[in-house]
Design a binder for these strands. Structure first.
Length: 267
DNA sequence: CGCCAGGACACCG
DNA sequence: CGGTGTCATGGC
């Protein structure tokens, strides 16, 4: 058991921020995360601290980096103009959101699934896919790791379609084959700069600009990436006259984007 | 039942 | 280059 008290850390906000689809509220102040082929239970105590059900070694080597706890999120707020009432409200409301360091493979498949689906539907599809093609996690009832590339590459378009994936099943099968046969080296892409990484991801069927930016932001922690979905476009139209001042947040616009998304969707 | 969802893609002018 | 129709399915 590990207890922490971190500023700018709110597991409930993170769970509802649309970046991770396997972090669920299991009760009042309790959460369960399936990630990195493991299960992590998290308890939010009354005094604002958190208890993680893992060893200190596991916390330091896996979960501290996963939750990006070594980064100071106060620095992302300094360039927001006081007159920007929308962003001021969004940062106050979403205080405690962090950009999780998830894996490129899971983000690639998850965000191919995400197109034209709402968040509950995405979570359901990821859960079905994991239950059918992921490894059961030892010592945990009904918990399954995210499927390996080989597992998804082998199961076929028809079986994938039966996981409520619809027309995306062909994209997912093709992407899984590229990764399984080495055509696409997701770990090797870490060496590329943002623009080259973006271009490499666009070669994957079913990956356009928006999904590529999500994979960059949530899978490679490229926090300059700024995914534009229907919610973000709606905000930019309604609050910024169609032109959001991205350059003001150069280098970390993706973090700002996440506050915008979470706040907009809450209303 | 109808509308919408963290879009991509082919096609068109 | 920018606009338009289509794609399959579930949540609300």
């Amino acid at each position: 058991m590990v207890t922490i008290k971190a500023d700018y850390f709110d597991i409930g906000a993170i769970a509802e921020s649309g970046q991770c689809f396997r972090l669920d509220r299991t009760g009042e102040g309790s959460f369960r995360l399936i990630a990195l082929d493991r299960v992590l239970r998290i308890l939010q105590t009354g005094d604002g601290s958190y208890q993680f059900d893992c060893t200190p070694e596991e916390f330091d080597s896996l979960w501290r980096p996963y939750f990006d706890l070594d980064e100071d999120y106060a620095r992302y707020a300094v360039n927001v103009p006081p007159a920007d009432q929308f962003l001021q409200a969004a940062l106050a409301f979403g205080r405690g959101i962090r950009i999780l360091r998830q894996t490129p493979w899971e983000m690639l498949i998850t965000f191919i699934i995400s197109q034209r689906k709402n968040i509950p539907a995405i979570k359901a599809a990821v859960a079905t896919l994991s239950r059918r093609y992921g490894q059961p996690i030892a010592g945990e009832a009904d918990c399954f790791a995210f499927p390996a590339p080989q597992a998804l590459a082998a199961c076929g378009d028809t079986a994938l379609r039966a996981c409520a994936l619809g027309y995306r099943s062909g994209y997912i099968e093709a992407a899984a084959r590229m990764v399984a046969d080495g055509t696409l080296d997701l770990e090797g892409l870490r060496a590329l700069d943002d623009e080259a990484l973006h271009q490499a991801l666009l070669r994957v069927p079913g990956v356009g600009t928006k999904v590529a930016n999500c994979v960059m932001l949530f899978g490679y922690h490229r926090i300059a990436a700024f995914p534009r979905d229907v919610w973000i476009n709606r905000i930019i139209d309604a609050e910024y006259g169609g032109a959001f001042p991205l350059e003001r947040y150069a280098g970390y616009a993706g973090v700002i984007q996440q506050y915008m998304f979470f706040y907009a969707r809450s209303r």
